[in-house]
Design a protein around this nucleic acid. Structure first.
Lengths: 216, 216, 216, 216
DNA sequence: AATGAATGAGCGTTCATTCAT
DNA sequence: AATGAATGAACGCTCATTCAT
């Protein structure tokens, strides 16, 4: 039967591509993009150079593929109307942390890694430097996350959880940068347990933020 | 007797070393550490490979030298007792921004550059990755800056500028990460005027922070 | 019984082979033998690598096939007894040019190309270098053409068109090399219109030759 | 003494460069430009890849260097006023053949080779194909040679060695192409003794040409 | 007959480093 | 202190070829 045959072949192709992407991502995160060589890729994937080139015509194309792969596996599905779901600190925290957790778990599933060290940032910056398209993706990703926070704080305002006169948009932006900054801490620290440390970090940042701003 | 001749020679040595450090720093910031080759260094310094190797035995040693050079030229002299000088938002802002401005100007003096793009971060992360000693330096630097902020907020508390019940240490830490995060924005943005954009960024972050926390 | 089905299959085979030969020839003439890759061949033929290898077991075998194909399509049918047909310069010119024209048109039919630049020569020399069999073919071809010219000049002599005492064989050989040489001019020139420039070139060479030798 | 020292160093550099050029030329003539690899060059020169790249930044630059080297070593000094020296066939032949002989001997001195096969032509055509600058050089070279012949035939005309009504420029051009063509014969033939076969070839071509045109 | 995934040798080139001068 | 010729390992990439399907 033709159908089955072709499906099998297509699956194998996807498999090899997937093997390359997964292993390349792990290497890129561990050593940075430039530092990873085809030698490394060959050893890690068990494939020949030619096979990798058969699927990705250049290292840059591989970078794009890996980046897309990382975003696909990592991006949580957009939450519908956070401005309605979020009614207080706990619902906000739950929503936010749940999303991050899903991201981290997707990430762990493909990298089989517990630690990141500085290298996710390094990989991102190299990507930005090498490839203008990827730079855009990263900026869009940041914008998206900021908008999500604005909606959350709009929800909190609707339920009178903000101190009088506080602008939800301003609060959202401040929290966004604080989260960015404190995420850097993870990368600088030696090593960390992804789930525990990361989630704890997010929780602490949210608690601190609510404490210093007087949100409830 | 250390004659004039020896002094002249010593001065020349320091000169050549300085020429190498300055130009290497500019290149590292522009392209990242790994991407800079001895070819680049030769063209920029006008020296031969051998001359550079004469002063720095390897690329890694050069990296350390350049990093130390960057810190030396950049680090502002510690302010004595900020907890006494800082009495309100304006004295805090003035003190903080003055320090940053001094940093930026020292930086400009050696790099002759107005823009940084993403590459300061890239350079730092590469440095962290390549060389454990440098990683420590960076962490110490961050710790130092955090302590400075704690002292400032202690000063503010002494003058009743904090809302009741707010912990100066917590406020300092939150502002620290927010500043880190918002600095990232600069690196992601295409290009920026160091003095104007940077200082504006710091001012805006401080204003926002005082606005959302209710500090005066 | 050789059914319709088998005939159809045989025709298809010949078709595919023909497609490969035709396109390979065009590529070889355009870029030279060594410079043409299977990548190029795939793109031009629309076939897969495997398909090409199915019909030609190696690149060298393909070269032989293409060369034979070029000769087959290009070689004009031998003129019977030129020593009888050629009675003066005009009959000679007509006979010679008609043959060349047939060659060129056969060539155009398979290559769909108006220009050759240096590459026919390049292709021939590469062929000679790579494959001893092909070298022989080329030498035979040249010998054949020389003999044809000898017969023509014999015809001219029979009709008293040669100055007294001139050896038809010597005249033929001289014209042959002059034609070879002046053909080189075409390859060195940037580009040329096959029919017009080529035929004009032959006509001019013949005229010049008759002028300097005093043949009629 | 500084002068001697620097002269020695300069001589060594020139030596290495010369070694590379000489060996590269031999290889290019033997196998063609594309077919020669750095592997070949390393083996033949006894130098490392890096050393070759130190002197020639790319294969194309090496090609240019080799080509210039070939022309330099090969080009005979321009004869002054051939229109005066050439008075009859023998003075013409002597002048022409002497120049060619000098060329061949210069060539032998650098290549230590007796045979060329097809490859000088192949090398030239590849050079034309790869590098537009070289194409120009070759065309200029041909033009130069043609002009030289025109001057020779002008000399012959001045001494009444041409049949009445024969144009010296036309005769020169015809002979030029005949020489080109008959040189091709050498390249197609298996192998040949440079001095003997080449010079014999030129002599024969000249004799034949004088015979068929009636020049004296 | 035809596909295209996979191989592995080898390509031109770059690089940090060494060393005689 | 400084030069720059030379090294050799490794780089990203291309190629003709094989083979299971």
């Amino acid at each position: 039967m033709v159908g089955l045959f072709e499906m099998k072949k297509a699956a194998e192709v996807r498999d090899t591509k997937h093997v390359i992407l997964k292993n390349a991502l792990q290497l890129f995160l561990k050593k940075g993009y430039r530092a990873v060589t085809y030698q490394d890729l060959m050893k890690k994937t068990g494939l020949s150079k030619g096979a990798i080139y058969h699927h990705f015509a250049s290292k840059d194309e591989l970078l794009e593929g890996v980046f897309g792969f990382l975003l696909d596996t990592t991006r949580q599905p957009a939450v519908e109307s956070p401005e309605d779901c979020v009614t207080d600190r706990e619902t906000f925290r739950e929503l936010f942390v749940r999303g991050k957790l899903a991201q981290i778990q997707g990430f762990k599933k493909i990298t089989h890694t517990r630690s990141l060290k500085v290298n996710r940032l390094l990989f991102f910056l190299e990507a930005i430097n090498e490839n203008d398209g990827l730079k855009q993706s990263i900026e869009e990703l940041m914008q998206e996350e900021k908008m999500f926070l604005v909606k959350c704080f709009t929800g909190l305002q609707k339920h009178n959880r903000l101190p009088p006169g506080k602008d939800p948009a301003l609060l959202a932006e401040c929290l966004f940068w604080m989260l960015q900054g404190s995420e850097m801490r993870l990368f600088v620290s030696d090593d960390y347990n992804l789930e525990a440390d990361c989630i704890n970090g997010y929780n602490k940042t949210i608690d601190d933020f609510f404490a210093i701003t007087g949100c409830l």
